[in-house]
């Protein structure tokens, strides 16, 4: 199994819903807490597993705004795992989820250095590395209702721009989306083979103009039609 997310850049409005859903689920979840330094003071700064960035593509007047949510891509060639000296970071062989064993991490930051996607953040209180767990504690928890065994960010996304599934299964929804919408990896040239895939903005629908006769009607040109009220 190769689990991961597909994120639709055509519909993401950058609402940050997925980011805070992630924060609230995971702060009490398996890698939690996700601490916040100076939460009510100057420059508050905490550990988040999912951040939303906004870009403008192109120059005035031909530009576009794009919101890009980013969390761990659960890379197939995850250097964050290979560099980790303590073995705290690992990639599950069953499903490819990359996790950090909080009991083992020594907070050396090396894995964060190895990650091109900014997916790892050091917890300011605990000194251990935090990252997206793909909500392993939701997707496999049999005590949750079946429909809810999905990542918190996917469940919450108000534009349904996030889809979770198995990229190894050609019939899964994620595989289909990647095929149909020409899904892209970010920074493929680095060779990490990120599993998470981004769907680029769609082509604009073609709108048809009403074929007009070309004769501009004048006020007097209107004719009453007999229409019953």
């Amino acid at each position: 199994m190769k689990l991961g997310l597909v994120v639709d850049l055509d519909t993401c409005v950058g609402c940050h819903g997925c980011a805070t859903a992630c924060k609230q689920w995971n702060t009490s979840g398996t890698i939690g807490p996700l601490s916040d330094k100076d939460p009510y003071g100057k420059d508050p700064n905490g550990a988040w597993l999912n951040r939303i960035r906004t870009y403008e593509v192109g120059d005035t007047p031909n530009s576009k705004t794009v919101h890009m949510p980013m969390s761990c891509m659960h890379c197939e060639d995850a250097a964050c795992v290979t560099v980790c000296p303590t073995g705290a970071s690992y990639k599950r062989s069953e499903d490819g989820i990359v996790l950090v064993d909080q009991d083992k991490c020594m907070g050396c930051n090396l894995c964060a250095w190895a990650c091109p996607y900014g997916a790892r953040e050091l917890d300011p209180n605990e000194g251990t590395m935090k990252k997206c767990t793909l909500c392993v504690d939701r997707i496999y928890d049999e005590k949750l209702p079946e429909d809810e065994r999905k990542p918190a960010c996917v469940l919450t996304c108000p534009t349904k721009s996030r889809t979770f599934g198995d990229f190894d299964d050609p019939n899964s929804e994620v595989s289909k989306l990647v095929r149909e919408r020409a899904g892209k990896q970010l920074m493929p040239e680095l060779g990490y083979n990120p599993v998470n895939t981004y769907l680029p903005p769609r082509n604009k629908p073609v709108a048809v103009k009403y074929e007009t006769t070309g004769i501009a009607g004048k006020v007097k040109g209107w004719v009453n039609k007999v229409i019953a009220r």
Binding site: M106, C108, G127, T128
Partner: peptide, 10 residues
């Protein structure tokens, strides 16, 4: 190291 108590695990 932010969590030196685990340094030995390196």
């Amino acid at each position: 190291l932010a969590n030196p108590k685990n340094a030995w695990r390196a």
